[in-house]
Nucleic acid binder design. Sequence first.
RNA 1: GGCCCCAUCGUCUAGCCUGGUCUAGGACACCUCCCUUUCACGGAGGUAACGAGGGUUCGAAUCCCUCUGGGGUCACCA
Length: 567
Amino acid sequence: MTTTNSAIPVTRFAPSPSGHLHVGGARTALFSWAFAKGREGKFLIRIEDTDQKRSSDAASVGFLRDLEWLGIRWDEGPEFTAPDGTRVGGGPHGPYFQSERLSLYNRYCQQLIDAGKAYESWDTPEELDALRKDATARKEAFRYRCRGETTAADRARFLAEGRQSVVRFRSGFEAVTIHDEVLGEATLPAGEVDDFVIRKKDGFPTYHFAVVVDDELMGVTHILRAQEHFTNTAKHILLQDALGFRRPVYGHLSIIKNPDDSKMSKRDKDKVLRKAVKERGLTAPPADSVSLVEWASWIGDENVQLSLEGAIALAQALKVTLPEINVDDFRRSGYLPEVLCNFLALNGWSPGGDVEKFDNAFLLQRFGLDRVMKTPAKFDRLKLLAFNTDAITGMPPEVFAKRCHEHARQFRPEFLAKLGDAKFALLMTACQERSKTLDDPFRSTAFLLTEDAALEFSDDKNVRKALGIGTPSADGGKSGLDHLRAMRVILGTVGDWSQPTLEAVATAYANEQAGGKIGAVAQPLRIGVSGSTVSPPIWDTLVLVGKSSALPRLDRCIAWAAATAGQ
RNA sequence: GGCCCCAUCGUCUAGCCUGGUCUAGGACACCUCCCUUUCACGGAGGUAACGAGGGUUCGAAUCCCUCUGGGGUCACCA
């Protein structure tokens, strides 16, 4: 064996095709990228689409956009045009889709067969299954071994029976030592690796074979991947030796877990939904959620995942919140890509000392395998949120406004349409210091979009207290509803509907009628125009709603409160 | 179950390799108080960990062993 000892590292991220990049994959990509780019190396992407059962059309590489959004760009790989027009991808080692590299795999596969290091194997699934059951019954781990030479006569018989062969690697009985830059050194005892399949009956290579061939051909020097591949590494090493390939440096990254200790996975959304469906004893899809067809296949098989749209619709119908798993989920929720990268890097790596806020440039400069954690990390969304909050409240206001605008353009177009530039700008200044995400300004001001006549007043404890419904004010003075009535009249006469004027008018009233307690006036007004006790600062809110909407809303609120109090 | 790996506050982690400076540091969360027109932000404090047991040593979070706990893997999926 030869160990790759190039001064310039080449790393890769090699996912199976999927529409979305989940946080675990994002971290692997981030680390691989940082490792290579911090050492003047190359980072490439390869799509591992050797499973024909999973769809692998070009449309299913949505994760490329997620990667680009995170600021991770690849020197070689699938071609992609970033939103800013930059062309990414391509390169001299393509194609970068494994399904387009079959002839390459076949060449090396034949080489192994010719050398007697691999052989055709004709077992049926049923026979293999029987073998496995047998091993289980004897409490042994099943290890496939060559079951004797297949003669020409056997071969003819199998063919006549309609059997199809696979190619298996003759792995031998040697112990295999894996050097891992993260986990250290581990030795798999002799006999642990069986004669695994390297070419499936459909002619496609298995993951193990394709990965080894491609990493060699693409000059990959360092492989950072999920820890679930650790044991597989033995197979890859055996293959590399048999093929006379160089051996890359390995680093296996621990998995990322949910707070409840379960492995964070793409299926978590479905898990939440299945639970809700079961709890409610539903036997048919709720109206306006998923189609009967999708529902049927989803209910029938625990392994089936709902489409993203289906999952969102069903979650809405069931009133459950889907966990954010994919990079895109966080994007929609208004997280900043630089914060996500920072936080992702902190799950499994740290620069040492007390430093924990950093950008990708810093990561690129400082990242090394020696400081990668061996232990699985739990993904703490609250801490992520805290990081995001810091980043947002610390932004120059114009940057916040610009990024929020971009977010709104993609996910909240209705606000853009309704507010117009001036009010949108006001919304930004009103909301920045109380926003944790780019989406918060919109999430917290849904009442702005509501038709005046359709605004609902939330009948909860805080509202009742502020309006004095059911609980006459302790001092026997005026209730919130009384103040609201008075303010409605005053506001009707206000000509200059601006924050300073509104505040001055209300303050004057409060000093005279509410003992100077501005809150006694502000809260009822807030409820009146927003429907609840939570909104941006009241004067801003009044301006955002506008006089022509505020007055009818206050009227409706007064009527509603009077009716509610009367009961 | 076989094989492999791992083990510091509730969580992410610093410290461990090169034992003493660790009565174990930071951050998030949590609790208390302050600020406050709501919600947030902010400010000041506080609770909280070396999984257990044996060694080695003058001295162990740091080195060794056992146990316990956790993770990964055992496919014609990647």
